[in-house]
């Protein structure tokens, strides 16, 4: 269990690249990367953002936000993230979960 490092809430969005399968999930709060989660190790993490705690579940090579103090819950609705560049963002909580890995062909940025 990784306990909350900072605080936050939501209006998030998710987006994703046509990257390859990721190896880990990076969790950012504010400007800081607060956690690096191994996607091969199923676990449930609680991460504290700017306005509250969010729950991030890792299971079978993918990760998703299952609970967040965001009003719109879009960061939850974006669902499972597994490919490099996939991300779930909660702006009010300043919390982002982003999939990373050893991927030669993943995008550096997504527009849209």
């Amino acid at each position: 269990m990784l306990l909350g490092l900072l605080g936050g809430l939501t209006a998030g969005f998710g987006r994703l690249a046509r990257g390859s399968e990721g190896t880990h999930a990076e969790v950012f709060v504010g400007n800081e990367r607060v956690a690096l989660l191994d996607l091969s190790r199923p676990h449930t993490y609680t991460i504290k953002g700017y306005i509250g705690a969010a729950t991030v579940v890792v299971d079978a090579g993918k990760a998703r936000v299952t609970q967040a103090p965001c009003s719109g819950k879009r960061c939850i609705h974006v669902g499972w993230l597994s490919r490099t560049g996939d991300a779930s963002l909660c702006v009010p909580n300043r919390l982002m979960v982003k999939i990373a890995g050893v991927a030669e062909n993943s995008a550096d940025a997504i527009v849209g």
Binding site: G14, R15, L16, N105, S106, A107, A109, I110, G112
Partner: peptide
């Protein structure tokens, strides 16, 4: 590399 996302498929 800059990709363009699909407006309906996240």
């Amino acid at each position: 590399r800059v990709d363009v996302r699909h407006p309906r498929f996240v």
